[in-house]
Structure formats: structure tokens, C-alpha cells
Amino acid sequence: MTLTAEAPTTGSSTAPHSAARKRRKRAEALAGFAFLSPWLLGFVLLTAGPMLASLYLAFTNYNLFAPPQWVGLENFQRLFDDPNYLQAWKVTGTYVLLGTPIKLISALAVAMLLNNAFSGKGFYRSSFYAPSLIGASVSIAIVWKAMFIDNGIVDRLQQVFGFEAGGWVGDPSRTMPMLILLTVWQFGAPMVIFLAGLKQVPTELYEAAAVDGAGPWRKFRQITLPMLSPVIFFNLLLETIHAFQIFASAFIISNGTGGPARSTLFYTLYLYFRGFQDFQMGYASAMAWVLVLVVGAITLVFFRSSKFWVHYSGEGK
């Protein structure tokens, strides 16, 4: 019997396949970047670029009519010597600390009511969500202002019920409650999120709690709140960030002045005054970056503290 040795297999046959795979991967990558290019251009030109420009301007003296002059930390030092700046933080902080919890509590309460089975609940869900579709637009702020001015609808109603006559728009002690009522009225978005979270709570938990003799408050405290904690965290974070960004309603209701008696001088409104009325763009940029840092720090605190009170299903705790 004659034995013949087979020729060793070389890598020459696999080389074309490897090159073809590389060309295909390169073509797929180029196609991916081509589809991403509109977003990338928008991000660079409309977001990242202006942010970097404002960061540079925060360290300069710039009034739009002359080249910026480098002043270092002077703008940041001026912030804490500016009484209007401190008032803007006071007004904004009050709005965030009062408006956000009241809005979320109202949204959760209505969501729990709508979670029950009753006829026509689809209509009620749409009705409660409708104000959030409108958003904090200029038209809504104008209507809200017309309701709360002297001899407006609210003024007439409070006179009917025996309260002192007078509009809320010109009263410094009432402008903040008026704006908080406006944001609470638009609780539809967090309400829908709460409602979706309530649908995910197993009914078996409530049935077992009822067998143990738990009442409504105990069920809410020991079942509903822990199961909804991820949704509460999401809504709390989102609404807090939105509250820091209030501008349109305060601008319209105060006629662009921040009055009466600086009671509506919100942070973003004062930033607008400095940047687009006084043309102190460097100072306004410094204000903007302080706001970014404060909101970022609050967001970090929320995420760090969430491990103590946010419970996710499937956690081994």
C-alpha cells in the first residue's frame, strides 16, 4: 500500500474572507456614522459647542459689542455680593421645595383614584393629563394671569366666599402660591407614570395584607410606597430639574420684571435680565454654570441616597 502525504493547508484561502469581513465591518461602521451624523452635528453645534463657549465666557467680561476680556473668577465672586442673585436663589428654592412635593403628592393621589375600576375612567385620565400636553406655554401663563388679576375670576370667587378682595398678581405674598398652583395643575405627566407603576404592583400583596388585618394606610405605607419607590425616584428627580428651569410663566405674570417686590425673580429670569437686558454675557454665563453645578450636585445626592429608600423588584435584600 502506498501512502501519500497531504499538502499542508495554508492560510491563503482564508485571507480573502478575512479581508471581506473587514471591508463589511468598515462599511457598516461608515453607514452607522452616516445615520448618526445629523444628531452628532446637532449635538456639537447646538449643545456641546455653546456649552463650551459659555464656559469660556463665564471667565470673561463680555457685552456682545466688544471682544470678551479675560477676568478669571471675578464673575463668580460678584455673584455672592449681588442681592438680586441671592433673592433669585431664595425664590427658586422656595418654588422647588414647595411646588415639587405638592405636585407629586397630587399626582400620586389622583393616580391611586384612577387606578380603581369605575366607568368612564378613560375620560378622567385624559382630562387630568390634558394640562400637561399644553405645558408651561405663554398662552397658559396669560390665561392664568387673567384669572388672578384684580376683579378676575379668582378675585370674584374669593369675594363670594367672604375673603378679602384683591388680585394675586400684584400681591407679593400670593404670587408664589399662584405659581405653585399653576405647576400643580399640570401634574398629568407624573400622574400617568405613577398610574403605570401602580399597575405593576401585584394584587396578591394587598390580598395577603388584608388577610393579616392591614388597613388602607398600612397597605399604602408598607406595600404601595416601597413598590412605587423607583417611580417616585424618577418623578422626583425629573420634576426637581424642571422646577429649577421655570421661566415663561414667571416672565409673563410679572410682565418681565420679576415683581412685585422681586417675588417672582426666579433664577432663570434673573439670568435672562443679566444676559439679554444688561448685556452682561460673562456674568450670565457664570450664573448658568453655577446652576448646572447645583442641579448636578442635587442629582448626585438623589442617586447616592436612592440606595437607602428605592427598592427594585428582584433585589436580594
Rank of each mutant, 00 (worst) to 15 (best):
V160W: 10
A288F: 06
V292E: 06
S249P: 14
G11V: 10
P216D: 09
A29G: 11
I142W: 05
R274C: 08
A136T: 07
Y283V: 04
A214W: 01
N75M: 07
Q222V: 08
S12Y: 12
W39G: 13
V160N: 07
I140K: 01
V201P: 02
A109I: 05
R125T: 05
E28M: 12
P38S: 09
T175H: 03
F220Y: 12
T240K: 01
L45R: 05
S132V: 02
I180M: 01
L36N: 06
Y62V: 08
L79W: 03
A284D: 05
S306N: 07
G167V: 00
Y129Q: 02
N235F: 04
A15W: 11
Y270W: 02
G275R: 00
F43E: 10
R174L: 12
W185M: 00
A141G: 05
F308Y: 14
R262L: 11
K307E: 13
L269M: 02
Y85K: 00
L41V: 12
D81Y: 12
L182R: 03
T268P: 00
E207V: 07
T10G: 07
I253D: 01
D171I: 07
A27T: 10
S37P: 07
T264Q: 06
T14Q: 15
S285W: 04
V110K: 00
A34Q: 08
F279M: 09
Y267T: 03
S54T: 05
P202I: 07
M227Y: 14
I298S: 14
R262K: 15
D278N: 12
E239M: 04
V290S: 09
V44C: 15
G167K: 03
V211M: 15
E28F: 10
Q77C: 08
F303I: 10
Q77Y: 12
L86T: 11
L179A: 04
M176N: 03
F244V: 07
F266D: 00
V231T: 08
Q245R: 06
T224Y: 06
G167A: 01
A19Y: 14
T100Y: 01
R26H: 08
A284R: 04
F80E: 06
W185E: 03
L300C: 11
L86C: 10
F247S: 06
P226Q: 07
I232V: 13
F266S: 00
E74T: 12
R78E: 06
M191C: 03
E28V: 08
D278K: 12
Q277T: 10
F247T: 07
S313M: 14
T224E: 02
A117T: 11
P101F: 02
A284H: 05
T100W: 02
S12T: 12
L46H: 13
I252E: 01
D82W: 01
S18N: 09
S285F: 06
D81V: 06
T9P: 03
G256N: 08
F65I: 09
G93C: 08
V231I: 13
I298F: 14
Y272Q: 04
M1F: 13
L36D: 07
P177R: 03
T240Y: 09
